[in-house]
Design a protein around this nucleic acid. Sequence first.
DNA 1: ACGTATTTGTTCGTATGTATC
DNA 2: GGATACATACGAACAAATACG
Lengths: 241, 241
Amino acid sequence: MADIKQEPGIAVWRQISQALHQDISAGGYKPGEKIPTEAILSERFGVNRHTVRRAISVLVEQGLVRVEQGRGTFVAEDVVEFVVGERTRFTELLAAQKRTPGTQLIRAMEIPAGELVAENLKLRAGTKVILIERLGEADGRPVSIGSHYFSARRVPGLIAAFEKRKSITKALSDIHIFDYIRLSTRVRSRRATAEEAQLLKISPATPVLETLSINCDTDGKRIEFGISRFASNRVELRFDT
Amino acid sequence: MADIKQEPGIAVWRQISQALHQDISAGGYKPGEKIPTEAILSERFGVNRHTVRRAISVLVEQGLVRVEQGRGTFVAEDVVEFVVGERTRFTELLAAQKRTPGTQLIRAMEIPAGELVAENLKLRAGTKVILIERLGEADGRPVSIGSHYFSARRVPGLIAAFEKRKSITKALSDIHIFDYIRLSTRVRSRRATAEEAQLLKISPATPVLETLSINCDTDGKRIEFGISRFASNRVELRFDT
DNA sequence: ACGTATTTGTTCGTATGTATC
DNA sequence: GGATACATACGAACAAATACG
């Protein structure tokens, strides 16, 4: 890794900061990877730990690294920005950001609606609904768990269509629902459950961003109620007004 | 607390669920309060612990209580819904929800812009900016920490005006900025820092919802860059499209 | 559940160089 | 030169979070 040659007139911590910056930019340390401890760096550069800390604090400010007490300092992984709008579609969103989208089916089944689902789809609790649950990936890394609920009566044959087409948008179009728009989105945050942590490959201490969204067809009829949970360390939502 | 009289024909867990529901609605257990352990409840109702668990699971589904493994079961605190739109203003938002809004000044000062602030206000890093930081409360409970950054050059006298008027909107109007609208909002989530936890009166394990928003005047010039941190257990954001 | 090692966070104190008046 | 303020750098110790057996 880069060393410094003690240019006089420029503060040492600036030089160290720049050296580390280059190491990261050059790919010497990869996103998500741990960089050496403060103790090791201070020894390598032949300076006090404070000086290294000062240098690292600049990188934190720049968003290049993230420090976790007791664990170490990690190269920041670039976050995926989800632009949430009327017609947000998972796959198109990622493609627009030049990322490789991927989805994995977790489960697809018909179940009776719980209270929350029934309320949001304007059904009576217990009515049959179709649940499609899948894991969304960006560049091979899991970023979201999406639970999509549809009134079973309104989308007959959806599961079959989905299994053939592997895409919700395409499956809906197969059963003649060609467009749907997002009515409202609620956003919350909470700690990940054990299952979520496992699926999203995050630690259970990492929060998840949870969105509840209602999607309607062009007549304003409620087609879908979706709950998505995003790994907060890899995702940021954006709402333009 | 309510007891049950074992009405035949109705499942016991339903009766228990209803009994607990009434206790909570009647205010016997207050929001945030811990309800008795499953062991105690099962003894009180003279049923097996499984039956109590079945009853509680209904309340969880209804969002009335929240179960924390190893800690207990707690009456859910009602969440404040923040409807984020073009002209979201803290005080008006809460008033519209029939809640008593309150703000406390944390600090107001002039500082050089950091990288993040400079970028979002389209200034050079180091330019003087005004920072107003305040704690937002709903019904006396802290819900948000708002850091509001303004280009010092563009809002001369803002701090003085704010100190007199105690309101950002009013202070801006005093210096002839009568309207401003929200361009975009980014939403993230992360664990609360120690300071945030203390100010928001939450545990450090509770995540915060963080929004970054850019506000422009009617000419599209960037007036304010705001970072708000919400206590995720008391707040939910809503975006209508 | 507990102790130990590792790693970052915080707070002292000390010393030196640099810029300004 | 002298006085002062500020930035830089080092050292030591302890606190707090985490990982691991």
